[in-house]
Design a protein around this nucleic acid. Sequence first.
DNA 1: CCCTCAATTTAGATGAGTTCTAAGAGTAGA
DNA 2: TCTACTCTTAGAACTCATCTAAATTGAGGG
Lengths: 142, 142
Amino acid sequence: MTDHNTSDKIITAEQLLLARGVKPTPQRVVIADYLLQTLSHPTADDVLSAVSEALPVALSRATVYNTLNTLKEAGVIKEVLTEPGRVRYDANVSHHHHFVDVRTGKIVDIPAEKVEAIGELLGDQYKVHGFQVLFYGELKQN
Amino acid sequence: MTDHNTSDKIITAEQLLLARGVKPTPQRVVIADYLLQTLSHPTADDVLSAVSEALPVALSRATVYNTLNTLKEAGVIKEVLTEPGRVRYDANVSHHHHFVDVRTGKIVDIPAEKVEAIGELLGDQYKVHGFQVLFYGELKQN
DNA sequence: CCCTCAATTTAGATGAGTTCTAAGAGTAGA
DNA sequence: TCTACTCTTAGAACTCATCTAAATTGAGGG
């Protein structure tokens, strides 16, 4: 398995949690599953409403936050910072970047390969561990 | 004047505020002056403590937030998002990027020229208005 | 099977950062 | 000097996130 949760072989949320050493409780499975199947970079609140309305499993706000932190620490999801005051989550944990459409607020992933040269542009005085690019502009197709 | 507040000719905070159409009250001048002379990317609270301890002017928390928003809207300063839950401010409003030293938390500016090629790396389906790169790693000197 | 016990979930309290409100202070122009 | 608007202020309120302590769950051992 690579670090792309959503590509290569199809893998269920439950299998992914087991593989990363996280006990797959119903709440965790449902949250991980939602994150794996969306491309929308939801906030904690987005996760709570999406999962609450679609599911038999009751879910408290605290559990959403607990689970998001657990999944983040286990490497199942990543935080995305695009705006002040809220954190978004992304189940694509491969090295990649983001593009924010300034008209719609839509956020799309940009593969690392597109900008991979950036890491070498800085001089000797910087030892670059990684970098994050946030593009903003307009998506010409949707 | 270019959009570098801190280079080219020496300019006082008061002159800068006037030039950007912001009435230079004592509180605003003092806050702008602090931001112009620091390289540390302070938070609102950092500004409040730095300015409060150094100055005859009394300063409330609300004024710090009001002023930071006023200066941001006037283009005198920029927000910097490097971590969840807090906003940092930078009086360097030229197009540039940031490098976070993961050992010390120190944040330094990276000039736009160093990474200027990035804007052209995306394909036709993106109209890039701008981009922000956040590097993280280790500063080898300083 | 059914205890036991540790892990998980939960509602609500709490906390951090920021914005809002409404009242007071300052100030430019009549 | 008065007026009228702008700015500042203290504290309330709001939003997002974490903490607390109690209830629930469920896996492993008898």
